[in-house]
Computed example of a mutant assay.
Amino acid sequence: MTAPGVGGVTATPSDNSPWSQRRHLSLVANDFDDLFEAVEEQWQERALCAQTDPEAFFPEKGGSTREAKRICQGCEVKPECLEYALHNDERFGIWGGLSERERRRLKRGII
């Protein structure tokens, strides 16, 4: 079986011409993970919580979340933080201004 080539030249599947070699493009998972981590680190560096006491964002069961949520209200990366938590199924702490319970409710409304 032959395939038409450029300028009347034909290529057969068994020859080593560029016409017979199939180019394969793929997104390598590690490259994507590296890119995702780089973007992730950028927003995390700008997060207000990175400049405060982390214990406020991971209160004991039944503890107050008010202080963490107050800090989140003024944070420029609040949407990125919430998206990260939802994407990574974060089970603990305040992320993007929402508690675990609030994130679960939000996901139920989305899904």
Score class of each variant (00 low, 15 high):
M1I: 11
T2G: 06
A3D: 10
P4Y: 04
P4S: 10
D15C: 15
D15M: 10
N16M: 11
N16I: 08
S17P: 06
S17Q: 10
S17I: 06
P18N: 08
S20K: 11
S20N: 11
Q21H: 12
R22D: 02
L25I: 07
L27W: 05
L27D: 06
L27A: 10
N30S: 15
F32D: 09
D33R: 13
D33G: 02
L35I: 15
F36D: 11
E37I: 13
A38Y: 02
V39E: 15
Q42P: 01
Q44L: 10
E45T: 14
E45H: 12
R46F: 01
A47K: 09
A47Y: 03
L48G: 08
L48H: 07
Q51A: 15
Q51K: 15
D53A: 08
P54L: 08
E55Y: 01
P59F: 00
K61D: 14
G63Y: 00
T65Y: 01
A68D: 07
K69A: 06
R70E: 14
R70L: 04
R70K: 13
C72W: 01
C75M: 04
E76K: 12
E76T: 13
V77G: 02
K78I: 03
K78V: 00
C81Y: 00
L82M: 09
Y84I: 07
A85D: 00
A85Y: 01
L86M: 13
D89G: 07
D89S: 12
F92R: 10
G93P: 02
I94M: 05
W95L: 11
W95D: 07
W95A: 12
G96L: 04
G97N: 05
L98E: 08
S99H: 03
E100F: 00
E100W: 01
E100V: 01
R101V: 00
R103K: 08
L106E: 08
K107L: 14
K107C: 01
G109T: 04
I110H: 07
